[in-house]
Computed example of a mutant assay.
Amino acid sequence: MYNNEEDSLVAHLSKENNILNDSINEIMNSPNVVFRAESSDTLFKQYQVLKHVKSKSDTLQKVFEKITTGFFDYRSRNQFYYNGIPGLAEFDTIKYFLKGDTISLPFNFNHRITSFDNIIYQISNYLQALQEKANSTMSNLSKSLKIYENQEIIDSLDRVLSSLQSSINEKYSEASNFEDIDNSKVSFSIKVYHSLHKRILSGIKKKYINNSLSQEKMIELGNTLICYYAFLDSNKTYLDRIDNMHKYWNDSLFTVYRDNPFDFRKLQTKILEGVQNASNILLNHYANQLLNAKTCEQIYNELNKIILLNNRVEFLVKNMELDIVQKLNRALRRERVPNRIERLLEL
């Protein structure tokens, strides 16, 4: 007869062992482990150690099943396990095959169950040590996998950056002569490219290709570079459009041509001069903010502000006859502060 305390302990240990077994199965059967296990000696060694730990856990589970299913109702556990539990009573050597070679690896685990004395409590101590060994091995396995995963990410970043850089070099080819061109004749897109390259991109790229950095830092820098490169690559057309936005507003939006009853030439009339002057001030402010942006997020935000400003200007011109637009035009005539103009234009 066994007391209730032992029965309760067996139930608890069986539950703990099941949790351990499930954890080991989950990581051993994960796609990354299955796919990469043989890609590195270290990784495969950790995999084999974990596999051996699982065999110990499986052995314990068989013991728990015998106890809980009534195997020892008419048998003595002490007599059955007089010399300990087979498979858990000796020091082990792990043997496995890798790349055609047979590898023998000592199983560094000092706990054994070699006698029948207080066997349930021996199992409790053994299981606790086995859990620690499994957790340590799974942690090392995860770290080894992380290195490969990070390297794959870095390789992918390199491919994207290479493609983007080739495209940018072609689109911004005139930037190589930036210092020799009159600043007034340099397009806004080239100014943006030169500003970002000089202030930010060259420094980040230099760090990114520095092999002394951690993989995590390289991934962070690679994603930052891609953000800037993608901006330059996809927005050059609109950046060039900003150069002509003042002229477009002046000639196409804020200038109206009406029939002249006394001449064949049209009468030229300026409209919404308050909106035009204020919008020009705000456009210059946004463009300057973009040129001096300190983060990738900021350059996207500043460009988006310019796009919204242009849309707002076009909307106001289209609805110039409305009283509210005329009222806004009067309010903007003497306004020179960008933040106030922004609020009045509801941007």
Score class of each variant (00 low, 15 high):
residue 58 D to A: 14
residue 127 L to H: 00
residue 19 I to S: 09
residue 269 T to D: 15
residue 15 K to E: 13
residue 165 Q to Y: 09
residue 33 V to R: 07
residue 199 R to P: 03
residue 175 A to W: 02
residue 83 N to G: 03
residue 284 N to M: 09
residue 150 N to S: 09
residue 206 K to P: 01
residue 247 K to Y: 11
residue 6 E to G: 01
residue 156 S to E: 03
residue 19 I to L: 10
residue 195 S to N: 07
residue 41 D to R: 13
residue 292 N to F: 07
residue 35 F to C: 12
residue 85 I to G: 02
residue 314 E to H: 04
residue 309 L to K: 13
residue 181 I to A: 06
residue 218 M to A: 00
residue 243 D to G: 15
residue 318 K to R: 13
residue 23 S to E: 11
residue 151 Q to I: 08
residue 30 S to K: 12
residue 299 I to P: 10
residue 259 D to R: 13
residue 313 V to M: 04
residue 231 F to V: 02
residue 291 L to E: 08
residue 171 K to E: 09
residue 207 K to R: 11
residue 293 A to Y: 07
residue 273 E to H: 06
residue 112 R to F: 05
residue 261 P to C: 10
residue 244 N to Q: 15
residue 263 D to L: 11
residue 149 E to H: 02
residue 339 N to I: 07
residue 272 L to C: 07
residue 102 T to G: 12
residue 190 I to A: 10
residue 89 A to L: 07
residue 303 L to F: 02
residue 191 K to N: 14
residue 200 I to M: 08
residue 255 T to A: 03
residue 108 N to R: 15
residue 305 K to R: 09
residue 159 R to F: 07
residue 195 S to E: 04
residue 102 T to P: 09
residue 41 D to T: 09
residue 191 K to W: 08
residue 98 L to A: 07
residue 104 S to R: 12
residue 338 P to G: 10
residue 286 Y to N: 05
residue 305 K to P: 01
residue 165 Q to F: 08
residue 94 I to D: 05
residue 133 K to G: 03
residue 149 E to V: 03
residue 113 I to L: 07
residue 335 E to W: 05
residue 43 L to Q: 00
residue 255 T to S: 05
residue 309 L to M: 14
residue 283 L to Q: 06
residue 180 D to F: 14
residue 114 T to M: 15
residue 322 L to P: 07
residue 248 Y to V: 10
residue 65 E to N: 14
residue 240 D to H: 03
residue 217 K to A: 10
residue 300 Y to D: 04
residue 136 S to L: 09
residue 21 N to E: 14
residue 130 L to I: 01
residue 229 Y to I: 01
residue 47 Y to R: 05
residue 130 L to R: 00
residue 286 Y to C: 05
residue 297 E to K: 13
residue 92 D to G: 09
residue 142 S to N: 09
residue 206 K to F: 08
residue 179 E to T: 03
residue 331 A to H: 08
residue 127 L to G: 00
residue 317 V to G: 10
residue 306 I to P: 00
residue 98 L to Q: 07
residue 48 Q to I: 08
residue 58 D to V: 15
residue 319 N to T: 11
residue 38 E to Q: 06
residue 312 R to D: 05
residue 253 L to A: 12
residue 205 K to S: 11
residue 62 K to T: 11
residue 141 L to I: 04
residue 208 Y to K: 01
